[in-house]
Every structure is written in structure tokens, then in C-alpha cells.
């Protein structure tokens, strides 16, 4: 693997990728930790069950019941093979619920981002600065309409290092280390707004405003795709986010709006 792939492509999918993308929120860190825990338990179970099956097949059969007679209708064995799976399930359920409820934790948000799914693109609105300087001025909304950047336009503009089918014509700027409230909705059919690095996947339903809270721990470029089949161009409505330090974000807002 080339060195720049290790350092720069961790927030975007790569060819034949096996691992999860790098986390940028505590949610995703928790999900990855839970995933590792699950894999560990799964490995133990697979090895144990495999070994038991193999041992049973090779040691016992119809005509060789000498050994098995010693623990025929054994109470102790019954208790062990009932309680062991129960304890294993408890071991899986407890971190799972902890994670689930910690993901629902709501904090006081600083910025609301409205994410609207269309057939077939995403649009974003940040209206928190609308009435900051002048009253009732709707021009102060930060609006993004993000279409897929086609392969032709990538090569035409000589955007080296841009991803195929993942880049949009505008990247949404978001501040890091800020509590964000994401409100996901749709205007036509079901979509799903998903960013693997954030550990976020929210359905966009028309008439519904689905809220998620995220706290981005680091800066970077993050990519995602629509994750609910929504029509012919379902695969061609990517999400590209640029997360910058909050001070730079404030400066961007000032230079853009005022």
C-alpha cells in the first residue's frame, strides 16, 4: 500500500477495503470498538463449536457409547450449556445497549444543518445566521446544492486526486469541535444520508425531520453516499464534507455572508 493511502485516504473508501473507515466522532469510535469486541467473541464461539463438533464426530458414534454413558442426562452439563450461551449473549447485549443509548445522547447544539434529499442530489441549508445582522433577510442562509462531479468534469478541470463518483461540485463546510444538529429530510422519495466516518446513517423521509447530533473531533474531508434505494441515479448522489477548525468556519461565514 502506498504511503499516501495510509495517511490521506482513511476517510474515503478504497478498492477492496476490508476495514472500517477512520472514526471522526465518538459514536464511530464506539462502533468500531464494539465491532472488535463482537469479532473477538465470534472467533471464540466459532473455534469452540468447531472443536466440539469435530471432537464429537471423531470420538463418538452409534457403536461406541462407553464414554457417553458416563454423562447421559447429566444435570451439570445441562446447566453449563444453557448458562454459557446466556452469559455470552449478556456479554454482547451490555456493550450494545450502552452504545445504543450513548448514540442517542443529546447535547445543546450550536449549529443546525438542514439536509434535504432530492432525486438525485443533496442540498444543505444553514440558516442560523439569518437574522444576525439585519432583520428578516433570507439571503443570509448558507445554501449548498451538491451534484455529483462527473468523471469528464474532473478530468477537464484537472482536479488531480479527486475521487470518482464521490465528489460533488460543492463541498459542505462544517466546523470541528462543535455540537452540530443535523436535520435530515427529503422532498420526494426516501433517501438516506450516510457518512461512515461519522457513524451516521439517517433516513430522509418526506414530511419528517430526522435529528442527529454529531460532534466532529477532527478536521478532514469526509465522503458518504445515499444509502436508501431512491431511483435510477441512487448511486450518483454522493456526499462530500469538508470539516475545518471552528475559527476558520466562523471566518468563512463572515466572509461569505457579510
Amino acid at each position: 500500500m502506498r504511503i499516501e493511502k495510509i495517511f490521506f485516504l482513511c476517510d474515503a473508501p478504497e478498492f477492496a477495503q476490508l476495514r472500517l473507515q477512520d472514526p471522526s466522532t465518538t459514536t464511530m469510535e464506539g462502533l468500531i470498538a464494539f465491532n472488535k469486541h463482537l469479532l473477538f467473541v465470534m472467533t471464540i464461539i466459532v473455534v469452540l463449536v468447531g472443536w466440539l463438533l469435530f471432537a464429537t464426530i471423531s470420538n463418538y458414534d452409534e457403536f461406541n457409547t462407553q464414554k457417553s454413558q458416563s454423562f447421559f442426562h447429566s444435570n451439570a452439563l445441562e446447566i453449563v450449556w444453557t448458562s454459557l450461551p446466556a452469559l455470552t449473549l449478556l456479554n454482547l447485549a451490555s456493550p450494545s445497549f450502552t452504545l445504543l443509548y450513548s448514540m442517542d445522547e443529546i447535547s445543546t447544539p450550536e449549529i443546525s444543518v438542514k439536509i434535504i434529499g432530492h432525486q438525485w442530489y443533496w442540498s444543505y441549508e444553514i440558516s442560523d445566521f439569518d437574522t444576525m445582522a439585519t432583520c428578516m433577510d433570507s439571503d443570509k442562509t448558507l445554501k449548498y446544492t451538491c451534484y455529483l462531479l462527473t468523471e469528464e468534469s474532473i478530468s477537464q478541470k484537472n482536479y488531480l486526486g479527486f475521487f470518482r463518483l464521490l465528489e460533488t461540485n460543492k463541498r459542505v463546510l462544517l466546523p470541528s469541535n462543535t455540537h452540530l444538529r443535523l436535520l435530515v429530510t427529503s422532498v420526494d422519495v426516501l433517501h438516506s444520508w450516510a457518512i461512515p466516518s461519522f457513524g451516521v446513517k439517517v433516513d430522509a423521509c418526506p414530511g419528517r425531520l430526522n435529528q442527529v447530533n454529531v460532534f466532529l473531533k477532527r478536521i478532514g474531508m469526509f465522503f458518504g453516499q445515499c444509502s436508501e434505494i431512491c431511483g435510477v441515479n441512487h448511486g450518483f448522489m454522493p456526499i462530500a464534507l469538508l470539516v475545518v477548525p471552528s475559527i476558520q468556519y466562523h471566518y468563512f461565514v463572515v466572509s461569505k455572508l457579510f
Binding site: D128, G207, V253
Partner: peptide
Amino acid sequence: DLLHQVKNVRTTPRDQRFPSQNQALHC
């Protein structure tokens, strides 16, 4: 001054009446 103002902007506070994921009624 503007930068200071932008820093201090806070979005709509959370409402106890709408604790659910769907915020359409909140809006």
C-alpha cells in the same frame, strides 16, 4: 466584531417537549 457575533450565534435550543428523533413538530 462580526466574527465575534458569528461565534456567539446559537441555534434553536433543544425543547423538552420534543425529545424524539422526529423534529417536524418542533419546527
